[in-house]
Computed example of a mutant assay.
Amino acid sequence: MKMRLLLALMVLALSLSACGNKPQNETHTTAVKADAPKIYQNFCISCHGNQLQGGQGPNIQKVGERLTEEELIKRIQKGGGGMPPFQVALKEDELKALAAWLADMK
């Protein structure tokens, strides 16, 4: 009887320990998405301007009207047209967050 009770308590404890926990990646990805403007500031502002208005690089204020998120990821990774590649400088989640943020610029 004591063994069953102990076993039931262990199962209950294990079940409850998993409740409400978010996967670590989800928390990190959410934080990175919120930091997309900071990523832009650190890597893009010098060429594309503080209002995305352009300068050395083109105006990207409405880049989401011209390029999809996937196209933006490729452009940021590979560079092109005078833009350097950032595939080494940015982590994958940073790259995706930046591209998603820019894709919303319409």
Score class of each variant (00 low, 15 high):
D93L: 10
L98N: 01
G81E: 11
C47R: 03
D35F: 02
N42Y: 06
Q61S: 05
V11T: 13
T68I: 04
G81P: 10
Q56F: 14
P85C: 04
G54K: 06
C19R: 15
K96R: 09
E70M: 08
D93S: 15
G20M: 04
V11Y: 06
E71D: 11
L98E: 01
M10Y: 00
A31S: 10
G79Y: 05
P85D: 14
F43Q: 12
C47W: 02
K106A: 08
A18W: 10
E69Q: 13
K62V: 11
L72A: 03
N59D: 15
V32F: 00
H28S: 13
N25E: 12
L6C: 05
R75H: 06
H48K: 05
P84L: 12
K22V: 08
Y40R: 08
P58W: 08
F86W: 13
Y40S: 02
A99K: 08
I39T: 09
P58A: 11
A34S: 13
K106P: 02
Q56L: 12
A18N: 10
A103C: 06
K91G: 02
L90A: 02
P23K: 05
M3Y: 12
L7R: 06
Q87L: 11
G57I: 13
A31H: 02
K106I: 09
G82R: 02
A34H: 08
G81I: 07
G81A: 03
K91S: 04
N59K: 13
E65N: 04
L14K: 06
G82D: 04
H28G: 07
V11D: 04
P84M: 13
T68C: 03
D35G: 11
I73W: 09
K78V: 03
K106C: 04
K2V: 01
E71M: 14
E71H: 09
M1W: 12
Q53W: 05
G64H: 07
M10A: 07
L6M: 15
L102P: 01
G64S: 09
N50L: 11
L6S: 09
K33L: 13
K33Y: 07
Q24I: 13
P23R: 03
T29N: 14
N21I: 05
Q56K: 09
L72T: 02
A89K: 06
P23N: 11
M10I: 14
M83Q: 09
A36H: 00
P37E: 02
L7S: 02
V88Y: 11
M1T: 15
Q77R: 15
E65I: 09
M1D: 14
K74D: 08
N50Q: 14
K106Y: 05
V32A: 09
F86Q: 10
G79R: 13
N25L: 12
W101F: 12
K91H: 04
F43G: 01
E92Q: 12
V88D: 14
D104N: 14
L14N: 10
A89Q: 12
V88C: 00
G82C: 03
A99E: 03
I76W: 02
V63L: 11
Q24T: 13
